[in-house]
Write a protein that binds this DNA or RNA. Structure first.
Lengths: 156, 156
DNA sequence: TTTTGTAGTCAATCAAGTTGACTATATTGC
DNA sequence: GCAATATAGTCAACTTGATTGACTACAAAA
């Protein structure tokens, strides 16, 4: 533990552990040829799975405007990861769904995250990893009670 | 634990716990009249303390370019939180130091973070908080061995 | 069936970063 | 000791990912 790390407070620890994880994830996605997938897209994919989602749903999920979502979808559609389908019952709306290529990215992402988590387990032990997740889940849950979804935007 | 939270993976947990912390911090700083302090500034202040820092040092610490640092310093200097002083030995350089008002923000920030951490301790217990910090410190340390400072940019 | 609300897009703007070019000063090498 | 090279900081132009505002097409409520 050198000097840089001794004075890290809780905010810095959470931020740095998150960046560490997400940097490795996207370095490795890049090497697999998914360099056009940016950190911001991961959480969007999660909401699209498994049955698609409307732009408004994605906007709420991500905590950004529908216009910003529309631009992200433009980008991902152009790159071939998602497509806009006409909404079955609402002619105003569209549903954004994953293409086959989109599913490949999601699968690659899951595998890499599992691998990183496995490596982290070797560092701290399985029980501590289990506890880490439980503790963070509880904190996120309790600390946001009442203020849900609007403030809960994962920025990465 | 409602449905939103059941499927959060490690990346989401780290991201959301960090956002939760940082959102409350800046909401409260805002209410104290420090609405012009943005999340990005916190980590910069930490490097300026206690004896000031040059632009290059801040750039390396934050993982952004010196030009970006220069702009941030413009902003913070205009708002009265820091000043540029001539460097004692290098006439090319300047040292950025906190003003009295800058110290007030730092103090307020520390107090609020301590309070939030205290509240979190009431939720999960002191031992678990202790362990949370130990585990995250170890992960950040081990997972970044060799790749230091360049990749370690806390984005908030 | 008229009025009001909602989903999505287009356009202009903003904020925070980038790259490139420049000035002034330091450092190095012959 | 001086010429060549490197470094700290700033200015300007551009990029990216968001925002707000205006609009169209359709849906839901009065």
């Amino acid at each position: 533990m050198n000097q840089v790390f001794n004075e890290l407070d809780l905010a810095a620890l959470l931020s740095l552990s998150f960046s560490t994880l997400i940097n490795e994830l996207h370095d490795r996605l890049s090497k697999l040829g998914y360099g056009d997938i940016k950190p911001a897209h991961g959480f969007m994919f999660k909401r699209i799975i498994p049955n698609g989602a409307t732009g408004m749903e994605l906007a709420e999920h991500l905590g950004i405007t529908k216009q910003a979502v529309s631009k992200m979808v433009d980008y991902l559609e152009k790159s071939g990861y998602v497509i806009r389908q006409t909404h079955p019952t609402d002619k105003r709306g569209k549903i954004i769904v994953l293409t086959e290529q989109g599913w490949l990215v999601v699968k690659a992402k899951e595998e890499i995250l599992t691998e990183i988590e496995q490596r982290w387990i070797e560092i701290i032990g399985a029980e501590r990893m289990q506890m880490l997740k439980e503790v963070l889940t509880k904190l996120v849950y309790v600390a946001n009670e009442g203020t849900l979804s609007s403030r809960l935007r994962p920025v990465w």
